[in-house]
């Protein structure tokens, strides 16, 4: 069972802020991390390999050379191989071109049974690249997976999380499966893994290494464009009640009643 995991290096977005006076981004000291949802995808891939008792796990990412750090972190967790798709020509890719490029990278791997990724990245929050890759590869997909069972090597049964429950879906392999946090509990890197990660060789492929149309790459191949970036509207300061429980609750109820009645 050969599993490919698509990962993204993201800024730890919880720390990113806009300076409301200058309307610019404050990102001093914001660390880069592996997208949290991708950590569950890596863990699931390792479990699938362990369950099958054979096969490999390959992590793949598209990005600048700095993504090397994220790929080594994945190797430390037990991943066998890491591939970085990196080229100036990929810069400015939106989800269309990213899906296109990653699909070309996966095709070059030839032998793959399952492609896993997080349900979305925490910087863009689109959740579009997983389905996009599946479409480019012409394979089925299951998004928001909370449980994955490999049936017999040729199909998988997956629980897809929905707003009010879940679907049970059976897909042939290869397929793309995007995972939510509920699917597993990621392991920590081992000391041996960390040693291996230090020495590991990361495969780097540029646009010339892939079977791609140069015009479909990066900003040129991307249908969308960002025209404006700005700070969200600030929330006005609130009313905080302190004191005896009876009084504070009474004050709150007086505020909430007209809201609940739909008057405000």
């Amino acid at each position: 069972m050969n599993v490919v995991v698509l990962i993204k290096q993201v800024p730890d977005t919880t720390d990113v802020r806009i300076d409301r006076e200058t309307n610019t981004l404050i990102r001093e000291g914001v660390p880069s991390i592996i997208n949290p949802f991708d950590m569950y995808a890596i863990e699931e891939a390792l479990r699938v390999r362990e369950g099958a008792g054979e096969g490999t796990v390959t992590v793949m990412s598209m990005g600048p050379p700095q993504v090397d750090v994220a790929l080594r972190e994945a190797i430390a967790l037990g991943v066998d191989r890491a591939v970085l798709l990196s080229d100036r020509a990929f810069a400015g890719s939106d989800t269309w071109s990213t899906s296109y490029t990653l699909a070309a990278g996966i095709r070059k791997l030839e032998d793959y049974d399952l492609i896993l990724c997080g349900k979305q990245a925490i910087d863009g929050d689109t959740g579009q690249v997983g389905p996009g890759v599946a479409q480019f590869l012409g394979v089925p997909q299951v998004t928001y997976a909370r449980k994955l069972t490999i049936d017999d090597g040729s199909s998988a049964t997956v629980e897809r999380m929905l707003e009010d429950g879940y679907d049970v879906v059976k897909v042939p392999l290869p397929s793309v499966v995007t995972v939510v946090k509920d699917i597993n509990e990621p392991r920590l890197p081992s000391l041996k893994g960390k040693m291996k990660a230090k020495k590991a060789e990361i495969t780097v492929w540029g646009s010339d290494d892939l079977d791609v149309d140069q015009e479909e790459l990066g900003l040129d191949g991307s249908p969308t464009r960002v025209v404006r970036v700005f700070a969200p509207e600030a929330r006005p300061g609130g009313t905080i009640f302190e004191g005896e429980v009876e009084d504070t609750v009474e004050s709150l109820v007086r505020e909430l009643v007209p809201i609940l009645k739909g008057d405000i």
């Binding site: 269309w96 929050d125 579009q128 996009g132 479409q135 897809r160 929905l162 249908p223």
Partner: peptide, 23 residues
């Protein structure tokens, strides 16, 4: 932008070769 919508429409955008903005 439901679970179903967010699964369905990215595949459509790739097929018709156009951009898609989420949420």
């Amino acid at each position: 932008g439901t679970s179903v919508g967010r699964s369905l429409i990215p595949r459509v955008a790739i097929q018709v070769r156009t951009g898609l903005t989420a949420d």
